[in-house]
Design a protein around this nucleic acid. Structure first.
Length: 651
DNA sequence: CTGAAAAGGAACTAGTGCTT
DNA sequence: AAGCACTAGTTCCTTTTCAG
């Protein structure tokens, strides 16, 4: 055995090498617990004398005195052909059928009509060409019906040859044979043109137009009518008749043949034919022009999230994996990315642990703390984590080093809460849990399918939203104006105190979070738009006249990590995902903004801008804005429902 | 984190020229 | 004609790199 070296000369030698490399015990241990192959059916990698890599495995056998047989990995391409592919029976089938001379291959009634139609069309074309003086092409088309008929007959014989056609039935040429023959002839003539004609000398023609045209002649004819009535295709596909399936197969064969002819590289591992293909990780349906996340990925997401949500603590690494995966999943709607901000926050917030120092070490301890409350030096006797952040001392939260003075002195040990940046332990915040639970539910829901192409953009004449904040009150207002119809508008006032109970990290003065309220106003506008176009999965681009640069950047990129704005950006993006309305905020000052500004400051009973009426007011509740609770009401109120409607809201 | 593409390498095949 | 050595090319597979 060339190049294999001594160890391949016998199983004993191979086993010897294995023992030398991995030790006698390991070998015996592996060998005793092995089932059929050791270490596995795949074997293990071995480098031969000449540096060649191969694989070696041991097979348990009682034939050999050692009890095992060494097997090398060698490619075996000498496998038996299945019965259906044997040449001998195929030839016999044809010979038997044509054993008697003068066998006639007939066209069935359908095929005869088709052949006549081909003849007619081709003869007309031939005549026109001859009149124009193109005798050569005219002659080709003149002979084409004959070629087509002969080739169709041969295709029928080929079916007999490969065993598709029953031997005890007379051969009949069907219209499918004719159609295939026609397409093949067309392809062959195109190929001939490329190979011999002017096109052959032009490499671009081979790579581009001609080859595509030759292909398109077949594939377009088949795929276009199918696409036109794609809604019926789903049911029809599974019941496709044998002939249609054969035509589809034929089409695929042709595409492959042409690619091979022109050395167009094909990745066989990724080659897929059909209306549904999985590509770049997504499942595409080219008939309904939609895409969705493949089932395996949905399942992976579901499992991933339920494991994460099961326990109280998690690890930084686990969070990174989940966030990374969601980053990928959110390709489907980039506005969803702000959702991830809370996960990243959790990632960089290690869990705090308690430490204690002796009261006598108090002064020394203070010198270990930097101005921004980081442990910058080791304190003898206390294993304080270097680089950790001091959160509180004696249960008193600290904001700066100066706050340490407020902590009273007592003879007892001083207890500290410090976060350790080296720790990988993490706890999910409330926001993250809500966020992850949403996606966990989403992963368990039936397939969503999203269109590949968005519906055309639609723009109302004018619309805007604005917010104002003064003291404890927050006002939002906005409107849509379409043609001559009266403007639809909203105007609501919320108190900061009531919002502080629901959203953490809000400042004590409403004016400081004006960007948040601007974003909230945009959410109101999206809801208003969605209410005007209920049920429609519209793609509406909203050039909003917004006079705050903070909200502008937020709504455009919809990604930020600073609190509390991140909460609002999250909600806005989810609302956009829900309603299918995407926001595109431009910084354009204009009169619309003065109206929106007016509406945001409007109080019940005050005068409305001209063209606005109380009847067209759209009421927005906090439930609708923040929890996306649908505004479904029963009217008149005395009526009841016979079933309990399923409620849907995020909290 | 993802998938695609590029790169790299092993195994194999076909063809060629030479010798026996 | 058969066998051998060599080369060029193909196929299959894995690893690395790249881009989003």
């Amino acid at each position: 055995m060339l190049g294999l070296g001594d160890m391949a000369s016998s199983p004993d030698a191979a086993a010897e090498l294995w023992k030398q490399k991995h030790g006698e015990d390991v070998f015996e241990d592996w060998f005793t617990r092995c089932e059929e192959y050791e270490p596995s059916a795949m074997g293990y990698g071995v480098t031969l004398l000449d540096g060649t890599l191969t694989r070696l495995r041991f097979r348990k056998t009682s034939d050999h005195p050692q009890g095992y047989q060494a097997e090398w990995r060698v490619a075996n391409r000498n496998f038996p052909l299945p019965e259906s592919l044997q040449l001998q029976p195929a030839i016999e089938r044809v010979m038997k059928y044509f054993s008697k001379p003068h066998q006639v291959i007939e066209l069935d009634a359908d095929a005869q009509a088709w052949q006549l139609s081909y003849q007619g069309a081709l003869n007309v074309q031939s005549h026109i060409l001859r009149e124009r003086g193109d005798v050569e092409l005219g002659a080709r088309l003149g002979a084409a019906p004959w070629h087509c008929g002969v080739l169709a007959g041969l295709l029928a014989v080929f079916e007999l040859f490969v065993g598709v056609h029953p031997t005890d039935m007379t051969l009949k040429v069907s219209r499918h044979h004719l159609q295939r023959a026609f397409q093949i002839l067309k392809l062959v003539h195109k190929l001939k043109d490329i190979a011999l004609g002017e096109a052959g000398s032009d490499p671009e023609a081979v790579r581009g137009g001609y080859a595509r045209e030759a292909l398109g002649a077949r594939s377009c004819a088949v795929s276009f009518p199918r696409f036109a009535n794609f809604t019926q295709v789903e049911a029809g596909m599974s019941q496709a008749s044998g002939a249609e399936a054969a035509a589809g197969q034929n089409e695929e064969d042709m595409i492959i043949s042409v690619c091979q002819c022109f050395n167009i590289p094909l990745s066989w591992a990724k080659l897929q034919f059909g209306a549904r293909v999985v590509w770049i990780g997504w499942s595409f349906n080219l008939r309904s022009h939609s895409f969705h996340l493949p089932y395996e990925k949905l399942e992976k997401l579901g499992t991933m999230l339920s494991t994460l949500l099961k326990g109280e603590f998690t690890t930084r690494h686990e969070l990174e994996i989940v966030a990374g995966y969601l980053q990928w999943v959110f390709q489907m709607h980039k506005l969803l990315k702000p959702w991830l901000s809370c996960l990243y926050d959790d990632m960089r917030r290690p869990v705090a642990t308690s430490y204690s120092v002796e009261p006598s070490q108090r002064i020394e301890f203070i010198s270990c703390i930097s101005d921004d409350l980081l442990i910058q030096r080791q304190l003898p006797g206390a294993a304080l984590p270097l680089g950790g952040r001091l959160l509180s001392v004696k249960h008193q939260a600290l904001r700066s080093k100066a706050d340490l003075r407020r902590v009273g002195i007592s003879p007892k040990r001083i207890w500290l809460r410090i976060t350790n940046p080296a720790s990988s332990k993490r706890r999910l915040s409330h926001q993250s849990k809500v966020f992850l639970r949403y996606w966990q539910q989403w992963a368990q829901m039936p397939f969503f399918s999203r269109p590949l192409a968005m519906p055309p953009r639609w723009l109302p004449d004018a619309f805007a939203a604005d917010a104002c904040a003064s003291g404890n009150k927050i006002g939002i207002g906005g409107f849509i104006k379409m043609g001559d119809a009266p403007a639809v508008w909203f105007s609501e006032v919320f108190s900061l105190r009531s919002l502080q109970k629901l959203i953490s990290d809000l400042p004590s003065v409403a004016q400081e979070a004006i960007t948040c309220w601007e974003t909230l106003a945009q959410m109101g506008l999206v809801l208003l738009l969605a209410s005007c176009f209920p049920g429609g999965r519209l793609k509406i681009c909203v050039p909003s006249w917004c006079d705050n640069t903070g909200a502008e950047s937020t709504s455009n990129k919809l990604f930020c990590t600073s609190l509390p704005l991140a909460f609002f950006a999250q909600k806005l993006s989810l609302l956009s995902w829900h309603t299918g309305i995407s926001l595109d905020v431009h910084h354009v000052a204009g009169f619309e903004n003065t109206i929106a500004d007016h509406l945001s400051r409007w109080m019940e009973g005050e005068e409305l801008p001209s063209g606005f009426s109380l009847d067209d007011r759209f009421r927005l509740s906090w439930e609708m804005l923040w929890h996306f609770k649908p505004d479904v009401r029963i009217w008149p109120e005395s009526h009841g429902l016979l079933w309990q409607p399923q409620s849907f809201a995020f909290s």
